[in-house]
Amino acid sequence: MSKRIDINDLNIYYGSFHAVKDVSMVIEPKSVTAFIGPSGCGKSTFLRTLNRMHEVVPGGRVEGDVLMDGRNLYSRDVDPVDVRREVGMVFQRPNPFPTMSIKENVLAGLRLNSKRMSSSTADELCERALRGANLWSEVKDRLDRPGSGLSGGQQQRLCIARAIAVQPEVILMDEPCSALDPISTLAVEDLIHELKSDYTVVIVTHNMQQAARVSDRTGFFNLEATGKPGHLVEMDDTQRIFNNPGKKATEDYISGRFG
């Protein structure tokens, strides 16, 4: 349940605005890949092209290929809805559905696939997803309470449970800890570590320590000037990026001598 992603010469546009330029990279299965870089350099934009969520923005489009185990996500016969069922996403701000209970939130994706499930199957899937998100013990007594009543960190793990409940191949996370306190952040980071044994995980973070802690590979994005497109400066093993980067720009950014 995890796939390799090959990105070839990807260019991303919002209408006529060229947001990200010429990105090529390989994302290995069963690993955590982190993207770092100054804000506005197109990390989120790029991440969202991996499940075609950028198309939700009017005018959002790409040129180039994203191959998931060899299948091009952007070929004509691919439905973005199917892509998103395979590539789950966790957002910057926890966004459990406010009108749903914790359990309904976890099962929301499964219900979409409109399989009828027995209530025992539902319970089982719910428990498995919540355990997978390290949340089960904290919420097992209040599965019918609203998800929005949880703490921020719990909400974010609920969102992760919701994403893994549909058993995707890949999980994308866009700054999943930026709205969380340090303790909740640690809980989510631990979880990311565990997730990579089953999934391909791609995470955007503005926190370099976090990238160093959780990821196997790190890509550094930058932009030459505001209004110019962002681009991938380099991508390498996380160890190398933080200890011995190949490019001066990376070193400057890592060591805080940026801008």
């Binding site: 998103r84 701000r93 966004n95 559905f97 979409l112 919701r162 549909v166």
Partner: peptide, 29 residues
């Protein structure tokens, strides 16, 4: 309807109508 919730539904693989059923209608009820 918060954009955040619409995107949450879409990212789960909801079609437009499913997104409306999951995020828009319950929120607007």
């Amino acid at each position: 309807t918060p954009r955040l919730h619409e995107e949450a539904a879409l990212a789960l693989g909801a079609t437009k109508w499913e997104m409306i059923r999951t995020a828009v209608l319950p929120f607007g009820m």
